[in-house]
Design a protein around this nucleic acid. Sequence first.
DNA 1: CCGCCATATTGACGCAGGTCAAGATCGCGG
DNA 2: CCGCGATCTTGACCTGCGTCAATATGGCGG
Lengths: 257, 257
Amino acid sequence: MSSETKTVLTLKRFKVACGDCSLNTLCLPLGMAADDLGRLDAIIERKRPLARTENLYHCGEQFDAIYAVRSGSLKTYATSEHGEEQILGFHLPGELVGLDAIADGLHPLSAQALETTSVCEIPFDKLESLSAQLPSLQHQLLRLMSLEIHDDQKTMTALAQKSAEERLAAFLISLSTRLQQRGFSPNRFNLSMSRGDIANYLGLALETVSRVFTRMQNDGLLRVERKAVELLDQDRLYAYAGTPCPSASPQSSRHSS
Amino acid sequence: MSSETKTVLTLKRFKVACGDCSLNTLCLPLGMAADDLGRLDAIIERKRPLARTENLYHCGEQFDAIYAVRSGSLKTYATSEHGEEQILGFHLPGELVGLDAIADGLHPLSAQALETTSVCEIPFDKLESLSAQLPSLQHQLLRLMSLEIHDDQKTMTALAQKSAEERLAAFLISLSTRLQQRGFSPNRFNLSMSRGDIANYLGLALETVSRVFTRMQNDGLLRVERKAVELLDQDRLYAYAGTPCPSASPQSSRHSS
DNA sequence: CCGCCATATTGACGCAGGTCAAGATCGCGG
DNA sequence: CCGCGATCTTGACCTGCGTCAATATGGCGG
């Protein structure tokens, strides 16, 4: 193989078009016609992969693009004036990061790779003008922002009223579900974040997360060894989390006061 | 006065055009040209006011419009399968509700009036097509959704790592700031929600909220009597909340890992 | 104007989970 | 292959806040 071929291969790896990307049913392209996809492709820049602990952007920096995770994973976090970190989200392939910065043009959070991670950079001004022309793109952008609001509301609910067990169970379910949507096994996966990260995100102490993991393991709910998790009893895990199983029938509507 | 005149007046009260609405620098119209405003006006329906405890919509209902609060206030809340309520937001005039329902076309939350409240109904399909034509409308819609994400992140941070005192202080600051933006006094206002609602929202027990209020009052931070609150020491309240005072100088950026 | 019910306050007590501390285990660089 | 630092686990102890319970207060309907 000549070095030229290698270069081409490398470029190819960076330059998967949206139409060929396996994530296009989760990501921005969802619902777009093939020829419109080309116009979206044209404004997207594929960046070199980030190494673990490398930051995609820092809190306070100017916002001019949103990012779609292509592979790997990221955490987004705020830093208080006392230097403590608060993790606000973990982001898997096909998910967008940076949406929180549209409001005032500065990133309120930092984003850091949890493992080798590559992203697509989508300049926001171009995205805005393109989505004015492509209704399905505009719709999907609004949908994804709405989804983020919805997910944050679920996290808030967990933080406000769930016990340590319930929070961790809900967290694992969320990961499992999202991994499954991305074609991975829903019951065997690796945690790309540390215990400390999980604890921080869930508003718990690191030690509590560790203890709850062992407790769940002793209960036969799952097996966990370091980063590797295997969920052994989905149903019981759902019950644990206090979340209705997605297969459950929808409850009838409630009436006021 | 004839009854005809009264009718006209009543209609007038319902039908303030966006251009004449005092909230148009906070709400969707921000940044729009005067003649574009008319097109927005045309798709908005002003609804009859809601009475206290009346619901604007219920969780599970179909989504077809977002709402802007015109006067009064709302809470949005989820209901768990065991019937417990989790409040996820309080909404003041100029704020939008229902944005979380765009993602899958059903309302994930219910919205209930905390006092006599009137809203503008904005059919979502019409809003979408109009914002494809009016860049400033599209921009403001994205901005407001981004702002909601940002605000939810702040709430998550409070829930994950703040003490009861800090949460309540942060809550009061948030209310105070938002009321000030709307032309009300930032240090004398009425709480339209009950202690129970505040506690629920902040992930605390009702009794804790009550105790923290009295403690803060004894510390000279504020005066509170039933619904009426007077903030006596903004600076100390900010210090309490662990939130940097808005007048504070921005901290330098952080470096990774 | 009175009585009742919703709402709020205050106190006593217990526990989930935080903190501190001591190992254990892993993985990486030399 | 070894040693050291990062990460994780486990234990012991303590505290902030939840829970339960009693009392106060206000507002509204009759």
